[in-house]
């Protein structure tokens, strides 16, 4: 049934969902995600990817089951503590007001009450990491699509989260910007952040993730190393598509 080599449900370290169910979206999902890894959630449309991500972020409360952060139920955590630990980048990155990039990034500091100095340092670090230092004064209406996506990610990074959960962060970006963001995610994971991405592009998941979780109809269909969780048998089973991987590891392409 499941290609599942990493299933040791040790919920003490990491972000776990235990037997999580949301009617019509996900049913009976249990897994523990590890910090320092890039995990991608894949699956066909309506498989429950965004719901699983929202549950893990504490934004959707499962009807049964538990979400645990380092063994502590998210539901029992004060909201600001949860917000300090878990950064969430929604699919539709919107900003109602035409803030300057620096002000936008500053919104990521809202869960913290550490004072202006710490805020400034964190905002600077985030802007530097995303190569936005020259744009700090610029209103977001004057940014290109790629710069805007980076500015919205800078908002999350400014909150210095230990977990970064992003719902299709690469949608609507051109190839160069997609790769630039993937490099960012890898760098964050190297710094110990747990990165969880919902991705549609299976090749990107294959090449850039440490671990892939495949959902199908709300169930866990596969979970493991990309080469196992996204093997041709799983792809045929879940996506109903006959496909072949081409190329060397790390630079594979999916031929359908």
């Amino acid at each position: 049934m499941m290609d599942n080599p990493i299933t040791s449900l040790d919920t003490n370290g990491g972000l776990s969902i235990v037997n999580g169910c949301v009617t019509g979206r996900i049913s009976g999902i249990s897994l523990t995600l590890n910090p320092g890894e890039v995990t991608t959630i894949c699956g066909p449309n309506g498989a429950g990817k965004s719901s699983l991500l929202a549950c893990l972020a504490g934004l959707l409360t499962p009807e049964s089951g538990n979400i645990l952060l380092d063994g502590v139920p998210l539901a029992a955590m004060p909201l600001h503590e949860r917000a300090q630990a878990i950064g969430y980048l929604p699919q539709q990155g919107e900003a109602a007001w035409d803030l300057a990039v620096e002000t936008l990034a500053g919104l990521g500091r809202l869960p913290w009450r550490t004072g202006a100095e710490a805020d400034k340092a964190a905002i600077n670090t985030a802007l530097t990491a995303l190569d936005l230092k020259d744009f700090r004064e610029r209103p977001i209406s004057k940014l290109s699509g790629g710069e805007r996506a980076r500015a919205l990610l800078a908002r999350v990074l400014a909150g210095e989260p230990r977990w970064l959960l992003a719902d299709e962060p690469l949608a609507n970006l051109d190839l160069a910007h997609q790769l630039a963001l993937l490099v960012q995610f890898r760098r964050l994971a190297a710094n110990g952040v747990g990165v969880v991405l919902v991705l549609h592009d299976l090749a990107q998941a294959m090449n850039h993730a440490d671990r892939v979780v495949v959902l199908d109809g709300g169930h866990l269909a596969a979970d493991g190393l990309p080469s196992q969780a996204l093997n041709e048998r799983v792809i045929e089973q879940v996506w109903k598509v006959k496909a072949h991987w081409l190329g060397e590891p790390g630079k594979q392409a999916l031929l359908t």
């Binding site: 972020a57 934004l59 909201l79 929604p90 109602a96």
Partner: peptide, 20 residues
């Protein structure tokens, strides 16, 4: 005020920033 600032990013993002 702070919660309204967070709402700039939409309701979901605001909740992820700890807004009740």
């Amino acid at each position: 005020g702070r919660a309204l600032d967070a709402l700039t990013l939409g309701e979901t993002a605001a909740r992820s920033l700890g807004v009740n």
